[in-house]
Design a protein around this nucleic acid. Structure first.
Lengths: 204, 204
DNA sequence: TGGATTATGTATCGATCAATACAGAAAGGA
DNA sequence: TCCTTTCTGTATTGATCGATACATAATCCA
């Protein structure tokens, strides 16, 4: 089925990537249609024809972010041989990703829309769901560590998953404040210091 | 010097408190003048006459927040007899404050304006400065712990201060996601598990 | 070559944004 | 009582918000 009508003159995927960067830097509310169209190199009717609405564009942008940026961070979780290494590599990848030069600092999922009442509810709900999924991924990896005997049976996977997910969220704000990579790695060191104590006693 | 002219018919301090709550719930960008005047029970000319501008109102609101809500959290730092208890109480107070019913969840200083480019720069700078001051307060308390012999001389106070400040920031996002008090306390437990390891080895 | 379909650029929509002009009201000082 | 000063409420400012109407251009199918 070849496309009918006048063909699009811009690269939809490239435009979406630009939009993602704008949302990433400015948040959902802070990114105006003018900001977006300027970065995407198109006029607003083209934006609406291709993406539907600002809200739909944001949802596509977060999906792209999760697929591209998220994978770099979260793939470490599955690949590492032990739960401990998985968590440490996940946090170190976070430190690296959040302090890349030439990109917005911190995480689009964590910082994109934190104020429910003002943004459209669907945006906040989508980000909240993605954050919850991240905690779930941590939880599953920790439970695997228990199942494989790496961690004691009474290890509190839920507490640890909540803790490490929260540390990662804090690192987004830390990165937004201009923290260097070494400062982010200091946070990682602190968070990993908790590992031994939690693993020894079954969550402190 | 008695006041001249028609006296103000509303309580400036009470109106500021209402404005603080609106900014706290919606952030700087998300709080419109209409939102603010509705909550404050005044019309916009009264707002501008009393506070100057939205930006100036926000700065006064953050000052009030720091003085009232902040003191509840940070006073624990000075009062506790040991650095360890100081940090733990500080985090537990944070968990309590961030999950109070009937108030916005999380911290105004942490969540009020995270996107530099869109908000006015002065707002972000003010919040960033306050966040930096919080880390400084933690750092001073930890250094006191070293000076008093509670902590080893090679304890990395800077790393620990960064770590605990970052955990607190993460707890703001966690609270915004609807985390219960016990979930926040789980994060505190995780963070305090790091204490022993850091104190033993000189920061992991 | 025409008709159908889709994209593009200009120009603009009503709503809302932060911020004020203005006239009348309420106080003190003369 | 009159003048000055300050606050209040109504109404409105220009700018910008997200989203479209409309005419034209470019492609496919017949």
């Amino acid at each position: 089925m070849p496309e009918r009508g006048r063909p699009r003159t811009f690269d939809r995927a490239a435009a979406l990537r630009r939009a993602m960067e704008v949302f990433w830097a400015k948040g959902y509310e802070g990114a105006s249609i003018s900001d977006l169209t300027a970065a995407m190199g198109i006029n607003s009717p083209s934006l609406y024809a291709a993406f539907g609405s600002k809200e739909a564009l944001f949802l596509e942008a977060t999906e792209l972010y999760t697929r591209v940026e998220g994978t770099e961070i979260w793939s470490a979780l599955e690949k590492a041989p032990t739960a401990r290494q998985a968590v440490e590599r996940f946090l170190r990848q976070t430190a690296r990703a959040y302090s890349q030069t030439g990109r917005p600092q911190g995480c689009l999922i964590a910082l994109g829309a934190l104020h429910q009442d003002s943004s459209r509810g669907a945006i906040c709900d989508d980000l909240r769901r993605r954050r919850a999924e991240n905690r779930e991924a941590l939880l599953r990896r920790l439970e695997r560590g228990v199942a494989e005997g790496e961690l004691p049976a009474d290890f509190d996977c839920g507490t640890a998953a909540t803790f490490y997910a929260t540390v990662q969220h804090g690192m987004s704000i830390q990165a937004r404040d201009g923290a260097s990579r070494s400062a982010l790695l200091a946070t990682v060191a602190g968070a990993m210091a908790a590992w031994i104590a939690m693993a020894d006693t079954g969550a402190a």
